[in-house]
Amino acid sequence: MTDTTPSDNWLQSRHDQWNTPPTLMNDYVRKATGSTIAQSSRVILGLDNEVYDVTTTDNHHFIVRISHKDEPRFEAERWALNAARSAGVPTPRVLLVEQATYDNISVTFCIEEKLPGKPLDVLLKDGLNSDLNKAIDQIGEMLGKLHSVRIDGFGYLQPDGKGGETSFADIMLMANERESELYEAAKKWNVPTQNVTTGLALLNTHRELYQFNAPVLVHGDFGARHIFVDGNHVSGFIDMQDCSGNHPIIDFVMWDAYWSELVPTSRLMASYDNKGLFTGSYDILFHLVLLRESLIMLMVHARREQRHGVQDFITNMERALRYFAS
C-alpha cells in the first residue's frame, strides 16, 4: 500500500475535477501525430494541467497536457522550448497547441513529444549512483545554455518570445505594491506582521541591486521534476509555462528553495559557465529574491485557499530574514 500525504490528496482532488472526454483527446492526438491512441495513463503532477502519457498505435510516445485556464501560456512555452533547443538544451517538440470545447467547457490542448528517461526527482528516490552523478554534473552547463538566450523585455513571455513593459525592479518590488493583500495573507497563515514589515523594508532598501537591464530566458519553475535523465545524461528540460525574461539568479533561487536537499545548488553552480554571476552582490540579491518569492507565494496560496506548501514559503522567508539580521 502506498502512503499518501495531505499534499497528495489535495493534488488528486484538484485533478479529479478535470475529465476531458477520451474521444476528444483521441481526435487531437490524431490531428497532432497522424495516429490514434493505443494506450494512455493519467499523470497526477503539477497544479495547472490535466496530463496524460500517451502511446499511439504506431508505438510513439507523447505527452498530452490540457489546460482549463483562459490563458494557459502554451504558445509562449513553445517559443521558449524552441529557443532553448536552438541554444543546445534538449527539450520536447510541441506538435500542437489548439483550443477545444466540450459540454460548454473550453480547454486548450498542448501535445508534445515525450522525452526519453525519467524525471530526476523520481530517479533520486533510489539514491545516487555513478550515472546520476554524471547527469547531475551536466545540469548547470545546460542551465547556462538556457540563460544564453536573450529576451526583449522582462516578465512572462508572450507568444512571440518577448517579455513585457516592466523592469527587474518592478518585479522585485511587486510584493511592496500589494502590501494590503500580503498582510491579509500573512494573517491567514499566522505569519507575524513584523516579519512582513521587515521583509518589505528590506526589498525596498536594496533598490540599487535591481538595476539589471539584460533579461535572459529563465525557466521559472526550475527543479528536479522538470529535468529528465536517461542513463548518464540529461535528456531534457520540460514544463516551461512559467518562462520569462528575467535575471538568471531566479532559477538558482528556485532550485535552492525547493530542491537543494536533493541536489545541492553548489553542484549546479560548479558546471554553470558564467561564474561571474556568483560574484559581487550575488548573496545579497539571492536572499532578496528568495524573500520576494516567499512573500508572493504566500499571497498566491491564500488566493487559492491552498495550504500545502505554505510552510516551505514561511521557512524560506525566515531564512532570508535571518541572513539580513546576521
Rank of each mutant, 00 (worst) to 15 (best):
L115E: 05
L157M: 02
V107S: 09
G127L: 00
P159S: 02
D221G: 06
I105P: 02
D170K: 01
E113K: 14
D137M: 11
L209A: 03
F154H: 06
M172W: 01
V216P: 01
L202R: 05
R207N: 07
N190F: 10
M172A: 03
D170Y: 01
F228P: 00
K125V: 01
L146G: 04
E179Q: 10
F109Q: 06
E112F: 05
L132Q: 01
G236T: 07
G140T: 05
S106C: 10
D137Y: 11
V191E: 02
L115S: 10
E113C: 04
K145H: 07
P159E: 01
I171F: 07
H226Y: 08
F212Q: 09
Y156V: 04
D121K: 14
D160F: 04
T198K: 13
L123R: 12
G164Y: 02
V216D: 05
D152L: 14
E208P: 01
N104A: 15
F168D: 01
P215G: 10
K145Q: 12
V234E: 04
D152M: 12
F228H: 12
D137H: 13
T205E: 14
E165I: 00
S106M: 13
F154K: 06
A169P: 00
G199W: 07
E141A: 09
F237S: 02
A214G: 08
C110A: 07
Q211K: 15
S180N: 13
M174E: 12
V216Q: 14
V149T: 10
G161H: 01
G127P: 01
L202H: 11
I151N: 08
G163A: 05
L157S: 02
A185P: 03
H226S: 12
P159H: 01
L143G: 04
S180K: 14
M172C: 03
K145F: 06
P192G: 00
D230F: 14
F228T: 02
L115M: 13
V107L: 12
R207M: 03
G236Y: 11
T198I: 06
L115K: 11
G231C: 07
T166L: 00
V149L: 06
G153E: 00
T108L: 08
T101K: 15
I105T: 15
E184R: 15
T166A: 00
A214V: 10
H233Y: 10
N195F: 05
M174L: 14
T108E: 10
K145A: 06
R207P: 00
E165S: 10
I227R: 08
E208N: 13
I139V: 15
P116K: 14
N190Q: 14
K118Q: 14
A135V: 12
G164A: 07
Y210P: 02
G236N: 10
I151L: 12
